[in-house]
Amino acid sequence: MMASTPRHGLARVLSKQGVCSRSEAARWIQSGRVEVDGRVIRDPEFPIVQGRHRVVVDGSELGEARRIHLMLNKPRGLVTTTQDERGRDTVYRCFDGAGLPWLAPVGRLDKASEGLLLFSNDPAWAAHITDPDTGPDKTYHVQIDTLPDEALLAALVAGVDEEGERLRASRVSLLRSGERNAWLEIVLEEGRNRQIRRLLAAFGIDVLRLVRVGIGSLALGDLGKGQWRELGEAEVAALASAPCSSDR
């Protein structure tokens, strides 16, 4: 017996085609903006077979959006979200006037952090990048309020248990030091919420600056703060390839 063709909820299909987020798709559907085979559908979970049904949004037939993958040098002070309930500036301020389609952040950087942040309307690619088992390493330059010794660097790699999570760095090295503070290069295999700040805090160390400078083979380079650019095909493919860490 032949297997039946899988059906997916209408909101999920819209988001997978890269035209909007799943939550936004649900709002479109509930407000009566979406038709399937000539009938208005108001149930975001209405099952359809992608490619078999004619889906129309605001009178225009839905097609696959051009897949876009871009990098932003996130400035400090912006939150990584499409809308902030507290009215704070978001990373989307950097795209004002660019005429870009809907894009979602691929991973996050907290408000006080800066540097390399990816965006895309390609959900499968984004899921691969953010998956701890398949995604590339992330590299950070971190200014701390102390002068580290070799024992501290080793302890950061060994890691600590905090609130049921194991926090550790894959690699740590000293970049440079001054009289009272130093810069470390810290490489993570996976990005837990505020992982570097929490890891360092466990050793009584405060973070003065935190800049993500690389994701896999993709480097922030000389991209200006608040500036963005689209990734080339080779860069997109490289990020979607096997993990970069040699010890995974």
Rank of each mutant, 00 (worst) to 15 (best):
V57D: 00
G59N: 06
D58W: 12
T82E: 01
K74I: 04
G77Y: 03
H69D: 01
V56T: 12
L78T: 12
E85Q: 15
M71F: 12
R66M: 03
M71T: 07
V79W: 01
R66E: 12
I68A: 05
L62N: 02
E61V: 15
S60N: 05
I68N: 04
V57Y: 03
P75W: 05
L70K: 09
H69K: 02
G63Y: 03
G77V: 07
V79T: 10
G59V: 06
I68C: 10
V57I: 15
D84P: 11
S60L: 04
N73D: 09
D58V: 05
N73E: 10
M71H: 06
D58H: 11
L70P: 13
S60T: 14
R67F: 08
Q83K: 14
L70W: 07
R86T: 14
G77S: 10
T82F: 00
R66W: 00
G87P: 05
N73Y: 11
V57T: 11
S60W: 00
A65D: 00
E85I: 14
G87Y: 02
Q83C: 01
L78I: 02
E64G: 06
T80A: 06
R67T: 05
L70N: 08
R76H: 11
R67S: 15
T82M: 05
Q83S: 14
Q83L: 11
P75V: 10
P75K: 04
E61Q: 10
P75N: 10
V55I: 15
G59A: 05
Q83W: 09
I68H: 11
D84V: 13
R54M: 04
Q83R: 14
L62G: 02
V55T: 04
K74V: 06
G63I: 09
R86H: 14
V56P: 04
S60I: 13
V57G: 04
